[in-house]
């Protein structure tokens, strides 16, 4: 089932994320996709995450479409002005890509090209508006398109961000701007997540919670240090530190997290550190397969 059908059906949505390669060898990317094909509704393809140069998600999303895997293509505002964004959206439609995750993007100085010019001509709310305008057959300046897009736009939110004040406002703006689904930053603190979701009970688009199974105590430390807005409770870090089989412990923690939030959200988005070798096992552990 593709993402749009999954949204329509109201089922509990499962998505997973793959990062394009840094280089021209796409064999690992394709084998990861093949692992996910039968177990998720759609595969996210990231757009130079952490501002590291990698292959364009446009090309790899198109490869997945050819493999009959529905994709959610990430598109950031970091590297493209409004002309390039619209051009890429038209190209995405032509390649059969139907789901776009609109996001600001990690800042340039975090990546491997710290002196790159940050673009940020549009912000994520404005990108969502552009997508919806193109779906109606017009570009940003109201010029008619020869053929409208039919893209399902999604947005991201960090339910762990505090204070909630402006996060709440921006979330509402994204919905008003036409977001049809939400994917979140990795959730570890389920109380923070549930508190956030309680605020948005009336929201009628699916919120798909981000899950990153920890691999070691060190990976928890890395995430806390390097991934903005990720909050991992000390008890979780302690469990990872004392675990004899840290990978299994990380999967258990992820499965428990899913159990504790599943009543409050409409899906989960698995984005492991490294490969998807354990994603199937995780989904089985929480009866999502």
């Amino acid at each position: 089932m593709g993402l749009e059908e999954a949204i329509e059906s109201g089922k509990f949505i499962v998505t997973a994320e793959i990062c394009p390669p840094k280089g021209t060898d796409i064999s690992v990317f394709l084998s990861e996709a093949a692992l996910l094909q039968a177990i998720v509704d759609a595969v996210n393809v990231t757009d130079c995450p952490r501002a590291m140069v990698r292959m364009s998600p446009l090309v790899l999303s198109s490869k997945l479409i050819k493999m009959n895997i529905d994709t959610i293509m990430h598109l950031t505002c970091r590297d493209r002005n409004r002309i390039a964004i619209q051009s890429d959206l038209l190209a995405a439609h032509a390649l059969g890509i139907r789901n776009i995750l609109a996001m600001s993007g990690d800042f340039t100085t975090m990546g491997d090209h710290p002196y790159a010019k940050p673009v940020f001509d549009l912000d994520s709310v404005q990108m969502l508006q552009v997508i919806n305008k193109m779906n109606r057959g017009f570009d940003l300046m109201d010029n008619p398109l020869e053929g409208a897009t039919s893209l399902c736009a999604g947005a991201v939110v960090n339910p762990g961000a505090r204070p909630l004040g402006f996060t709440r406002i921006k979330f509402q703006k994204k919905i008003a701007a036409g977001a049809r689904f939400i994917q979140t930053q990795a959730v570890y603190d389920t109380d923070l997540f549930n508190e956030f979701m309680d605020e948005f009970k009336s929201v009628n688009i699916p919120v798909i919670a981000g899950i990153i199974p920890l691999r070691s105590a060190k990976s928890a430390g890395f995430m806390i240090e390097n991934i903005p807005g990720v909050k991992i409770p000390q008890t979780t870090v302690n469990r990872m530190e004392s675990a004899s089989e840290p990978i299994t412990e990380g999967l258990k923690i992820a499965a428990e997290t899913i159990e504790r939030i599943r009543e409050n959200c409409q899906g989960v988005h698995i984005m492991p550190i490294g490969k998807h070798e354990h994603t199937k096992r995780l989904l089985e552990m929480c009866s999502l397969l």
Binding site: C77, S104, G105, D123, S124, N158, A161, P228
Partner: peptide, 17 residues
């Protein structure tokens, strides 16, 4: 990030990322 419609996901405990 020149945002016009609110903070990005990196705004953390009120601090810029």
């Amino acid at each position: 990030k020149s945002q016009l419609n609110g903070p990005c996901g990196g705004s953390n405990d009120g601090e810029c990322e």
